[in-house]
Design a protein around this nucleic acid. Structure first.
Length: 361
DNA sequence: CGTGCCGGGTA
DNA sequence: TACCCGGCACG
């Protein structure tokens, strides 16, 4: 049993590897690559099912979750590709999506875009010592094949913006895209738009799963979550609020010009908070307000249950006592004792503007 | 506003 | 590591 499972796992890995290699080939025509990707995903799903059949999986979960997990796995495999050095190359500039936001009167802060990347865009721009080659058109094809199938669909639906825009979409890089059901008390998270739509259609709207009456109503009941891969390591999570369709009406609604949907936690914030921020917990609260019933939950960066931030508001979590600095001692320090003119008599700590060692509190 | 000193920069 | 200093909080 174990041997058989190991065999299957190896085979599955091989398949995945093949899929990766296939996806990495940038010389093939785009259409062919897309088909290859689709085939690879199908293969992955089939293999996984075979593997699952050899594992004692509880029946209750087996069929319900299997499909989702397959998709998630496939999505993860493809998404993981996006961390390749090629794709991690920072963009020349970071306009694209932000520009459309700006059109709505929304001006994202510099760090809001940094949330997309694992590097700081600010320093990136100011640091000419780390040039990065622009992505060529071929790279885009390569890139495109590596992203989630649904993303491909989305891009196609959006009129091939991807190819017309010489700047790579940041969402393709370090962002994982998930879809969360916004239906009251549901919150189901799926990896594909089709999946979430089907979920909403069947579960919440009571329509048959394969019915053709897709009037797009489902779009209003789910949201796209972008998960930054760096999120967990930095102790921060950066969500990029995105409506189901990038430029769809909901996005306008969901991005009121309150400015509140600027980035989560940025340097400016850190600066403003000063030392308060040093002791601030690495969690913050997100408010989704595109639907009245959306809840406010703490964002646990280590949890898989990410909260979509359609409308993100930085709200300081209750700080315990706001004790960030020990109260100033009453005792005189070198500065007061000796005065500025006798600075050479100060203890080194005082000279270095550190905590006085000679007259500690 | 003076003071204490944290955090970060520089050599 | 030693040294320096910007800048912030406290009183």
């Amino acid at each position: 049993m174990m041997y058989e499972f190991g065999d299957q796992a190896t085979e599955w890995k091989t398949t995945a590897s093949t899929a990766l290699k296939t996806a990495s080939r940038a010389v093939e025509p785009e259409q062919e690559l897309k088909q290859e990707c689709a085939r690879s995903i199908c293969l992955l799903e089939q293999k996984r099912k075979v593997v699952s059949s050899n594992i004692d999986v509880p029946q209750a979960r087996k069929y319900e979750d299997e499909l989702d997990m397959d998709k998630v796995t496939a999505a993860m495999v493809l998404t993981s590709l996006s961390t390749s050095p090629l794709v991690r190359s920072p963009p020349i500039r970071h306009t694209d999506i932000n520009e459309s936001w700006r059109d709505c009167g929304f001006v994202p802060s510099s760090s809001s875009s940094s949330g997309y990347w694992s590097w700081n865009t600010t320093s990136d721009y100011s640091n000419p010592s780390t040039p990065s080659p622009p992505l060529s058109a071929d790279n885009f094809k390569h890139f495109r094949c590596m992203v989630h199938p649904d993303d491909i669909t989305d891009d196609t639906d959006n009129g091939n913006l991807f190819f017309e825009d010489p700047v790579p979409r940041k969402r393709k890089n370090s962002m994982k895209v998930m879809f969360k059901c916004l239906w009251k008390k549901c919150g189901k998270i799926l990896s594909t738009a089709a999946g979430i739509k089907k979920h909403i259609r069947t579960i919440h709207l009571g329509r048959s799963g394969d019915s053709d009456d897709c009037d797009g109503e489902e779009d209003f009941y789910y949201t796209e979550i972008r998960l930054n891969n760096e999120c967990g390591t930095e102790g921060l999570c950066s969500f990029s609020p995105v409506s189901p369709a990038l430029a769809s009406p909901p996005s306008t609604i969901l991005f009121p010009s309150t400015g509140s949907c600027d980035s989560i936690y940025n340097k400016t914030e850190s600066k403003l908070n000063g030392r308060l921020s040093r002791s601030a917990p690495n969690t913050f609260y997100l408010v989704q307000s595109d639907h009245p019933y959306q809840v406010c939950l703490p964002c646990n960066t280590n949890s898989e249950e990410y909260i979509p931030s359609v409308h993100t508001i930085r709200s300081s979590p209750p700080r315990a006592g706001v004790i960030t600095r020990k109260p100033r001692g009453e005792g005189k320090k070198c500065r007061k004792v000796y005065g500025m003119e006798n600075r050479d008599k100060w203890c080194t700590a005082c000279r270095w503007k550190k905590a006085c060692q000679r007259f500690p509190d």
